[in-house]
Design a protein around this nucleic acid. Structure first.
Lengths: 225, 225
DNA sequence: AACGCGTAGATTGTATACAATCTATCTTAT
DNA sequence: ATAAGATAGATTGTATACAATCTACGCGTT
């Protein structure tokens, strides 16, 4: 018997504690549980999530790195505002990064990759399917970020992509109606990339992210209503 | 300068441990102590810096957030490449953020602030002084980022500003010759901002950061030679 | 009564012990 | 001899105890 094989209330997965806290606090932020300027201590998070201080501290540091809270010496965590304005700003920064990545990618991305992605999107559209877990969407953004040729830019785009994905999943826990991924917007980006048109591709990406921003703001409002 | 005034082996400042590790590893990266792909364990860092695992872990998480190392479960920290290409990419991302912030700031920044900053830069230039600790430079970049009106964009610019400042200080520990801050480049930005010219200001910022990138690359090469 | 100071509580920073997991080597059966 | 599996070591994930620091309240002095 190599493993204890406990069934029933299995042992807490050690690796999940930190992400559980990150998710929980992010959910609280999105639901409007705290107002900007509110403070809470490590001890309160320990009690709320039932884990020890170590994963709580690491989770708070991660959230600070994501610009969602602020940690002050011996003063607890200060919750930063998180409303429609902040979501708009988040998508604005994401747009700055991805629009520039798209501009760079236009002259570097491989045509075969563009064709393959276009095929998958058109197939999805023909079947009337939905890409419910945003797998294709993420693949597209990731492929463009990689084609930018700047590893650090790719990393920053991933940072925001992971944050947006976490927000999507939290929204999905409550509202069954997930906004349909916009295949047409994606295809517009790919068509411009296929022609090697940096301005057209970056403009199409900007339009796509503006639409995504509006959808995200509506989702937050729905979550809080 | 307050001058730390460390006398004797006073009590270890509890708050300094984590930043000491961050600084030490960042210095190692800049000096080329490790090659990209090298791995080191928490235990080795504990031994190297003489602190416990807790601040080491938090330091590694911070460095991962800065995109300098990669943490893998039970596999230690993987050092990412850090050479001239990576410094160039770092400044490219910084440029993307700050150029857009400058464009946004052109129509929002207060004229009095621009005039005040121009006064301080011209005074520095008239006196032939140097702004050795980059205080004015940081004030300018911070003021522009604030004037962008996007708090998250400001935060991201701060993230890179702090990283660049830490790199400058590490370079300064070894090489007495610090590159002179380029007053003319700063004044070009401010003059365009004063006229409310978004394209001129953002172009001047891009030029300024391109020069800074070249200087940083030269500094790294000097540090390693 | 107002201000300064000191002490107690609270909170975070750090160190260490324990648990879970992974990697690599060694054994064993085919 | 090769490959599959088990076992031991190493490494990270988590929990807890201790140290340092900050905040706030109460006391004493002016």
């Amino acid at each position: 018997m190599p493993a204890a094989s406990n069934q029933g209330p299995t042992h807490r997965q050690p690796v999940a504690s930190k992400q559980q806290v990150v998710r929980g606090i992010l959910r609280g932020l999105m639901e409007g549980l705290w107002r900007g300027g509110d403070r809470f201590t490590e001890a309160s998070a320990v009690e709320k999530f039932g884990v020890s201080r170590t994963p709580v501290r690491e989770a708070l540091l991660q959230l600070q790195g994501l610009g969602l809270i602020e940690l002050r010496r011996n003063c607890g965590a200060v919750v930063l505002p998180f409303g429609t304005d902040e979501v708009r700003e988040l998508y604005a920064v994401r747009s700055i990064l991805e629009v520039e990545a798209t501009r760079l990618a236009a002259s570097r991305i491989h045509r075969e990759l563009v064709d393959q992605l276009m095929g998958e999107f058109t197939e999805i559209r023909a079947r009337g399917e939905e890409d419910p877990d945003w797998r294709l969407d993420r693949t597209l953004h990731q492929s463009i970020a990689e084609a930018s040729g700047n590893h650090r830019l790719l990393a920053e785009i991933f940072r925001y992509g992971d944050l947006v994905q976490a927000m999507r999943e939290i929204v999905g826990e409550r509202t069954s109606d997930i906004h349909t991924t916009s295949v047409d917007e994606h295809l517009a980006i790919l068509e411009a990339l296929r022609e090697g048109d940096p301005e057209g591709a970056s403009l199409a990406m900007k339009n796509h992210l503006d639409q995504a921003s509006t959808s995200a703001i509506e989702a937050i409002q729905t979550l809080r209503s």
